[in-house]
Amino acid sequence: MRLLLVRHGQTPSNVEFLLDTAVPGPGLTALGERQAAALPEALADEDIEALYVSTLVRTQLTAAPLAAARGLDPVVRDGIREIAAGDLEMLPGDSEQGLLYMKTVFAWAEGDTALRMPGGESGEEALGRYDAVVAEAARSGAGTVAMVSHGAAIRMWTAARAGNVDVAFAADRPLDNTGVVILEGSPADGWKALSWAGAVVAPAGEGGPTGRPV
């Protein structure tokens, strides 16, 4: 299966670099709406057969133009929502406490899945829910699946599950709003990342704390 993991469009909390992870979350900025509108053309070469979104409003708004262009009904799944910040919710992502968020996320990707986000979920729980949605998509038989998800969750899951992406790579390469990570494989055989934001090595950019390097 070809798996496209798409980060949502820009939100007001991204502009302010806040760890805003609660459901349903904010909508998109004007720039975020333009980013969403550009997705159908950006993914024009992809034969997308199924489209998944999280329970956060920003992913559903981001996916709407793509869904309309392809005639797809987005499948809403809580498993691909953003990693809950717990006690760190709404803190600046570049503050001392805020930086603990991404450090915890990447510790999970390195295998310390018993570690728990302060006041939030463990790595085992976060990876488990994401794995479940990917497995569901694989069982659907679709050749290419797009999932509009979230920056920290995409970077963590890819670093943990793609054989050719390690934590250092994911930590050094932020994923901008509507950036795409493309993988190929299956839950049984494993995953290989084919591209990260359009290239094997993407330049660092902005777009919110979960899109920034640590």
Rank of each mutant, 00 (worst) to 15 (best):
L194D: 06
G141R: 10
G208P: 11
W157H: 05
Q10G: 08
T29C: 07
L39G: 05
S186P: 11
G198E: 08
R70N: 09
E82C: 02
A107N: 09
M117P: 04
F17L: 13
E49R: 14
G27V: 00
R81V: 00
A135K: 14
Y101I: 01
R58N: 03
A109P: 05
P74A: 03
G32C: 06
V200W: 14
L43P: 08
M1N: 04
L183A: 08
T62L: 02
V180P: 11
T144P: 10
P26I: 00
E33W: 05
A107T: 10
V134S: 05
V133I: 13
A30K: 09
L100P: 01
D47M: 12
Y130W: 13
A160G: 08
V181N: 05
L194G: 05
T158H: 04
L19R: 00
A152C: 10
P24Q: 01
A138S: 15
G9H: 00
P209E: 07
F17T: 12
G98M: 03
A138C: 10
V201L: 15
T178V: 14
E110D: 15
A197E: 14
F169P: 08
A188S: 13
D166L: 03
E33C: 04
S195D: 14
L127V: 05
A22W: 00
A168S: 14
Q10R: 11
A142R: 04
E49D: 06
G141Y: 14
A204P: 11
W191R: 02
A168L: 13
G111W: 13
T210Q: 11
G151A: 02
L56P: 00
T144R: 10
G198Y: 09
A188E: 15
G141M: 13
P74W: 00
E33Q: 12
W196G: 03
L39K: 04
T29N: 02
D131M: 04
D20L: 01
E206M: 15
W157K: 03
R77T: 02
F106W: 09
G120Q: 02
G179M: 14
L72G: 06
S122Q: 05
N14S: 08
D47Y: 13
V200F: 10
D166I: 10
A126M: 07
P118T: 00
R161Y: 10
S95T: 01
L19Q: 01
E184R: 15
D172K: 15
M1F: 08
E110F: 04
R161N: 13
